[in-house]
């Protein structure tokens, strides 16, 4: 049995925050995850990897909670996190969720819709992260984003 992540690691916090068994949104764990990722040297890099994995979950509630964590962190965690999310290394993982060539045919509709919504919101409120609009334009060109 894989050793469980230590109690207050980013991994254990994201597991709690996105647990499909949660009856409702676990804002405590979301807040703790955001604070922790800011206090660790490699926090933003690890956080985006963990979030990408959860967002790609076939379980709708787990993926939707992960998107809520992502949105909360984008509002509260500042520049270091913004620049990690603004890299193709992370954006490509979101693109896979909506692209029929990758996970798009299996991903829940609600999750795909939410991914496109948050990406669009970032093109508006984070214009300096130019790769985000590059990725969004490409999705529009491929007809994945309806005009």
């Amino acid at each position: 049995m894989a050793t469980p992540p230590e109690e207050d690691s980013l991994e254990s916090r994201i597991n709690k925050a996105t647990n499909p068994l949660n009856k409702e949104t676990d804002w405590e764990s979301i807040k703790a995850f955001c604070e922790q990722l800011n206090n660790e040297l490699e926090g933003p890099q690890l956080a985006t990897r963990l979030l990408a994995h959860k967002i790609q979950s076939p379980q709708e509630w787990e993926a939707m909670q992960a998107l809520m964590v992502l949105e909360t962190c984008m509002k509260n965690c500042g520049k270091r996190f913004h620049s990690e999310v603004g890299k193709f290394r992370f954006l490509n993982e979101l693109i896979k969720v909506v692209s029929p060539k990758y996970l798009g045919t299996r991903a829940p509709e609600l999750v795909k819709k939410k991914v496109l919504e948050v990406m669009y919101s970032w093109t508006v409120c984070l214009p300096e992260e130019t790769k985000i609009s590059d990725a969004y334009q490409m999705l529009k060109k491929q007809g994945i984003v309806k005009q």
């Binding site: 206090n39 660790e40 040297l41 490699e42 926090g43 933003p44 890099q45 270091r80 890299k87 193709f88 290394r89 954006l91 490509n92 693109i95 896979k96 692209s99 029929p100 060539k101 990758y102 790769k131 590059d134 990725a135 490409m138 999705l139 491929q142 994945i144």
Partner: peptide
């Protein structure tokens, strides 16, 4: 903590 600024990245996925 100021992390060293790592700008490494991948190319945009083409779909």
């Amino acid at each position: 903590p100021t992390s060293f600024h790592d700008d490494s990245d991948e190319d945009l996925l083409n779909v």
